[in-house]
Design a protein around this nucleic acid. Structure first.
Length: 596
DNA sequence: ATAGGGTTAG
């Protein structure tokens, strides 16, 4: 075959091979010449030799050399890719991989397959496996190579491919390694693909693939992140069956799960987890405490957060920046800016450097207390200190100025972003647009909307919520509805706020029945009414003097297990009790006819 | 290879 080709188109190779009439690739002299060209990086000479043929064929020949160092083939491989922009065939990839596997050069296989997955043609698992089985019957080496292919898929975020490989490994007699499975689980968890996480986990158990504590922790963390705390509990039971003992990480995931989940008593359960782990002799660490402290602070219970903060210090644990940031955030949300500043000073004393998150929280804290001067001072100071202020920092300050209708100042901050090469995002515009609407400056708001679109920034749900709110406030509910339809058409998912704003709009217009229709639409589109929805409806019906109906909403809300909040109580106090409604012990109202 | 922190709309 080689002789034939030489007859039709004599390549420069002739120089090397004319003397002997054997096919050139099996000529040891030729092979050693090529080897030395590669090892001495004589690429230009090599290029001349290859140009008449093609690099993939040449690689194929190299792979058949009787006596060549696999490292040299890898060098050639990489160079040829670069020099010819060539995509090598699956066969060549598998052949080279097996060659490397036999030499136990595992990192090289890893990088080779990484390139294969990342830069090659779209691959299919079956093509790869068949090629692999064609070039080698060493089932051990095959399995290793296949495992590395799956790993490469995971690392290149080709999770569907990795999953297909996972599913079909058995068909080809391959076994995946524990590390690959764990890494796949990790990637699936990170992507929030919890269904796949559960599938892989079940299959690992069924197929008796090896698993370890990390496997379980990963699955538990995934389940907790998606709010499936009960299922996470089932996994803990599985662990017992397999004699694997939970550790801090397991418990930290569970605690984080409870903290993030809504509903009453969630922090009680999170705290119970802490007690349970201590009872089992597992020591809580900084992350455990940070998670709980943050959870309590977000649950409007900074006091509990501070208690845990003291407790962790007593345990000899050193709070870190995250601990302080959580507390500072919590305090700022409560308006306790002085205490927040006190904590900032404490961190400095302890040699902890506040970071951008700390500063954003403090600037936000000042803003909430309308201490704009202090907010600005802090901002200017950290800029002077060289802290990398980010979009969020700017947005926080811009928002503060907008809420105070100080648009000139807001624009100064906005313009200073450009100088610092910080790009405004949708939120930046949302703050400004919301501010202008609030101020009644519809033209300025519209101008910014246009500017935003010009910059290629797409309006998000919040942008629409702001616009819908503005329309409702102007009494133009019809336009507001048109915006709702527009966002649905754009594929944006209206939020609770969207519907609540519209319901509020109808109520304020004195049209509570339209509000009720909107509530139904909200439910039809898959959003469950929340406390705000009910607050708005209760207030709306009260406003139309329909107190019995308002009371029915209150009862409906309680029946659904939604806890009333301060706003609810204020409405009851200010609107309903005057009309003769009296609360009973469960919070239900009944009509006291004696009073009315 | 697994666990924790920030804004804007109600």
């Amino acid at each position: 075959m080689y002789c034939l080709r030489r007859l039709t188109a004599p390549p420069p190779l002739l120089l090397y091979t004319l003397a002997t009439c054997r096919p050139f690739t099996s000529d040891p002299d030729f092979q050693s010449q090529i080897s030395s060209l590669i090892s001495n990086h004589k690429w230009s000479q090599l290029k001349r030799i290859i140009e008449s043929s093609n690099p993939t064929d040449f690689l194929h020949q190299l792979l058949n050399f009787s006596n060549i160092n696999s490292d040299l083939i890898v060098s050639f491989f990489k160079w040829s890719q670069h020099a010819f922009k060539v995509t090598h065939s699956v066969e060549n990839y598998t052949k080279l991989s097996i060659l490397l596997a036999n030499d136990k050069k595992y990192p090289k296989i890893r990088s080779l397959l990484h390139i294969f997955v990342k830069e090659g043609k779209p691959i299919s698992i079956s093509t790869f496996c068949n090629a692999l089985l064609n070039v080698s019957d060493n089932s051990c080496a095959n399995s290793v190579v296949f495992d590395m292919l799956i790993l490469a898929c995971v690392k290149n975020e080709m999770l569907d491919l990795a999953l297909e490989g996972f599913r079909r490994a058995g068909d080809y007699g391959f076994k995946l390694s524990l590390v690959s499975c764990n890494l796949m689980l990790s990637a699936l968890v990170k992507d929030g693909r919890i269904g796949n996480v559960e599938f892989v986990y079940k299959e690992m158990i069924r197929r008796r693939i090896r698993f370890n504590l990390i496997t379980f922790n990963m699955v538990i963390s995934g389940l907790c992140k998606s709010g499936r705390l009960n299922k996470a509990g089932d996994i803990i039971e599985d662990m017992k069956v397999y004699g694997i003992v939970p550790d801090v990480v397991t418990y930290n995931s569970l605690i984080a799960g409870y903290c993030k989940r809504g509903g009453a008593g969630k922090m009680y359960k999170a705290d119970k987890m802490l007690k349970e782990m201590v009872e089992r002799g597992i020591y809580a660490n900084v992350i455990t405490y940070n998670t709980l402290i943050d959870g309590f602070c977000k649950d409007d219970n900074v006091a509990a957060g501070v208690r845990l903060f003291k407790e962790m210090k007593e345990q000899g644990l050193s709070p870190d920046v995250i601990t302080y940031n959580s507390l500072i955030n919590g305090l700022c949300a409560e308006g306790k800016i002085e205490e927040a500043i006190g904590l900032r000073d404490e961190m400095l004393e302890r040699g902890l450097k506040p970071n951008i998150v700390t500063y954003n929280a403090l600037i936000n804290g000042f803003s909430k207390k309308k201490m704009l001067k202090e907010a600005r001072e802090l901002f200017d100071n950290i800029v002077k200190e060289g802290v990398d202020v980010n979009v969020l920092t700017h947005n926080t300050l811009i928002n503060a100025y907008c809420k105070a209708s100080k648009f000139e100042e807001a624009l100064v901050v906005y313009n200073s972003m450009m100088e610092k090469m910080v790009s405004p995002n949708v939120s930046t515009y949302n703050c400004l647009i919301g501010g202008y609407y609030h101020d009644g400056n519809v033209e300025a708001a519209q101008r910014l909307l246009d500017e935003m679109e010009e910059k290629g920034l797409k309006a998000d749900v919040v942008t629409y919520n702001i616009r819908i709110d503005a329309m409702c406030k102007k009494g133009e509910t019809r336009k507001a509805i048109r915006l709702l339809d527009e966002m649905l058409k754009k594929g944006l998912n209206p939020s609770h706020v969207t519907y609540n704003t519209l319901i509020d709009g109808y109520c304020k217009q004195g049209n509570p029945n339209a509000a009720l229709t909107m509530k139904k639409r909200m439910e039809k589109e898959g959003k469950r009414p929340n406390v705000v929805t009910y607050n708005v409806l209760i207030k709306g019906f009260c406003g139309s003097n329909k107190f019995e109906e308002a009371n029915r909403f209150l009862n409906a809300m309680l029946e659904k297990g939604l806890a009333p909040n301060q706003v609810t109580y204020d409405i009851i106090k200010e609107e309903m009790m005057e009309k003769g409604f009296v609360p009973d012990i469960d919070g239900h109202l009944y009509h006291d006819s004696a009073k009315s």
